[in-house]
Design a binder for these strands. Sequence first.
DNA 1: CTTGTTATTATACAAATGATTAAATTACGC
DNA 2: GCGTAATTTAATCATTTGTATAATAACAAG
Lengths: 236, 236
Amino acid sequence: MDGISTNPGKASAANPDDDGERRRKPGRPKDNGDLRDVIADHAEQVFAEHGFAGARVRDIAARAGVNQALISYYFGSKRKLFDDVFRRRGRVLAGHRHVNLDALLDRGEPLAVEDIILAYLKPQWDMKYSGPGGAAFVRMQARLHAEPEEDALRLRREVYDASLHRYITVLTKNLPDIPEDVISMRMAFLVGTYLFMLNDLGRLQDLTSGHITDIGKDQMLSHLVAFLSAGLRAPV
Amino acid sequence: MDGISTNPGKASAANPDDDGERRRKPGRPKDNGDLRDVIADHAEQVFAEHGFAGARVRDIAARAGVNQALISYYFGSKRKLFDDVFRRRGRVLAGHRHVNLDALLDRGEPLAVEDIILAYLKPQWDMKYSGPGGAAFVRMQARLHAEPEEDALRLRREVYDASLHRYITVLTKNLPDIPEDVISMRMAFLVGTYLFMLNDLGRLQDLTSGHITDIGKDQMLSHLVAFLSAGLRAPV
DNA sequence: CTTGTTATTATACAAATGATTAAATTACGC
DNA sequence: GCGTAATTTAATCATTTGTATAATAACAAG
């Protein structure tokens, strides 16, 4: 099917002279050395498309243009590769969320719910539209949230919990009529809503018979913020 | 484990002329013949736990207590098995949603948003708590929604679109201040919210430090309805 | 120049996987 | 009773899959 699998005997027989070689020989290349990142980038894509179980190590290696053994060399195993790739983006995301919240808190309270929600959502939004890697990460998240396995749960906790808890605390202070447990619950709703939605934008156009296509991403974000803020504020 | 599956392999322990061989012999069994359903039930579980790509045909066969070839015989392929299992529940779900909406419409308009939302959510809720199969179906849905593949998209459309569009129409009539496109969008939000949530109940307890455990499923449902209704009603 | 370390490749492998086959057994219409 | 079709099994197949191994080349240190 693909031109990757090679028969060494046949290849050398067909080659009268070896100076026109297209095949790369093993050995350290001149300098480059950042194939690790190249692998991670392509892995992100493949994991997003097919999920962990559906992703093929061969596929990742092929897309990254490297030998399959190299991903074992750098990451150890498929699972470790997945976790690594996921954490890489997750840390960036959490960082932005913390920064945004800090900026809000510097302004002094009370804060509008809309602003808090926006501070939480915006980094994810920006990441999604920052390039193919960001969009892939959104899909990876949606998939990870659908996995009941212990591995997945640990990873989710690790990436999300810290910033999420901070936001819950701030929201609780700014919505004194709503008990903290209810806010926590509603924040869980919120995570579901936006992840699902970001992941499923195509479906959204589908539902609205394509009318949504015209709406820019910023407008879409404010629609989402309005929806979620109203939900968060709903009287108990 | 499960009270459903009739395990033919092990059931032959009462063989009269049995020479100690516990293996089941091939051949048509007396009457039963409903191994198809047994397979489907167990497939539901496995697909829910591991997703389509992660599910193993051998595993399904083993849990159902049948030979692996039998699932090819009945369903043709792994993919067809998945679709079949999914459609089976999906049809039931859609049916209940239609019935509920019809009942509402018989009461005459205008309707409260809460009632409409509840009519849409309740069947899913009941199904989830109707037994292991229902819970498994919820997880299958969450996973299917995370799959960008064409196969998955088609299946989602087939199962959800009809009833969803009816609900959108009704909501549009009962919320005259909000354009239909916005309602469609918000209904997409809604689907994300409840699917995510139902699938991820354990996580919810996690977030609230276990305080949610005390809340019964009915109370949880009304929390969700309150949240979503407020969001749907949010002024544009 | 030698030696060792690191990055990369081709190749190999054992296990796992979805599917198929041929045979065996039984229910059922005639 | 008999033949035919339906149901079920054991066994196996051809691939695919994740990982491991050994070879090779660049580079650094001495």
